[in-house]
């Protein structure tokens, strides 16, 4: 039971990176990204391939971050002006495109078989491997959280919020909005890449079917559950989503009237319901004057 709780927390940490990234893009800057899973997948594969090529873990993590960020930059570059409607479609399409490449290009990443034997970081003395992994990932999430918080509070965060509010105004005061939006998008993609590296390392095995569009939607739900733009809210939202998705697996031992397949569907319904309830409550309490 404790081991299971630790596993849920580790998933919350992994998705925490991805959600914090989306929060910079969407929450802070207003860029709608429906394909965050693409950068998560790129980070995971980059990490797996790099470690298999003999890179030290830390170097592989840095590489995964940079490669995801670079792909984020490419998407930003090829999406005309990063306008919200285009961006939603382009990112969604891009994430499927990336998944299909990993699925079909066997020479690159093993195709449908995926990549196995991805190394984990060394265990901290005195802890079991799972708890040790949790401590390492929590420390890094903490760092990402610290960065996000400062970003939002610094003048750069003010400029990004201003872009979310009204891009025209930001241009009229002499700021190149496209450059700011690209930077925010790259940061968000890089954070998702870190999450991907941790994901690959934790499971020690990845395959293309783990990177479907539902991951993007879970992360979107996490950011939505926390107040849009708040890093703390985003992490809390991630914890709720992880608990709902992973925690409800436990229910099958207690609820016997539905079978496993039905329960799987019920878990998603529970997530949807929680999302609706929380959004309705939030809308009531923070309706703008």
């Amino acid at each position: 039971m404790v081991a299971y709780l630790v596993a849920i927390l580790i998933f919350a940490m992994i998705y925490g990176f991805v959600a914090l990234g989306l929060n910079i893009q969407w929450g802070l800057t207003g860029l709608i990204n429906l394909g965050q899973v693409a950068f998560f997948a790129i980070g995971a594969y980059a990490f797996a391939l790099a470690t298999h090529a003999g890179m030290p873990l830390l170097a592989a993590l840095v590489l995964a971050t940079l490669v995801s960020g670079a792909f984020g930059g490419a998407v930003a570059l090829f999406t005309p002006r990063l306008r919200e409607d285009y961006l939603a479609i382009v990112t969604l399409g891009f994430s499927e495109f990336i998944r299909l490449i990993f699925l079909n290009e066997k020479w690159l990443a093993g195709g449908p078989d995926g990549i196995a034997a991805i190394p984990r970081p060394p265990t901290i003395p005195g802890l079991d491997t799972e708890t040790s992994f949790l401590v390492v990932s929590a420390a890094l999430v903490g760092l990402a959280f610290w960065f996000s918080q400062r970003l939002a509070r610094f003048p750069i965060g003010r400029t990004l919020r201003a872009i979310r509010e009204d891009e025209t105004v930001v241009a009229s005061v002499g700021k190149p909005t496209l450059a700011y939006k690209s930077q925010a998008f790259i940061l968000g993609a890089a954070l998702a890449g870190i999450g991907g590296a941790f994901f690959a390392s934790y499971l020690t095995y990845i395959s293309p079917d783990m990177f479907g569009p539902n991951v993007s939607i879970y992360v979107l739900a996490a950011v939505l559950l926390g107040t849009q733009g708040s890093s703390l809210g985003t992490l809390a939202g991630t914890a709720v989503v992880a608990a709902l998705l992973e925690g409800t697996r436990l229910l099958k031992d207690y609820i016997t009237i539905v079978d496993g397949v039905q329960l799987a569907a019920l878990r998603l319904m529970a997530l949807g319901l929680a999302l609706m309830v929380i959004v309705v409550i939030r809308y009531r309490t923070t309706r703008s004057p």
Binding site: R158, R161, A162, E165, D166, T168, V169, V170, A171, S172, V173, G174, K175, P176, T177, S288
Partner: peptide, 21 residues
Amino acid sequence: HAVARLGLRRTFQIPRELKRM
């Protein structure tokens, strides 16, 4: 933004205040 940086600035007919700031 390049025009603005030269020292030529404008206001908008319908105010465009950044509401949540």
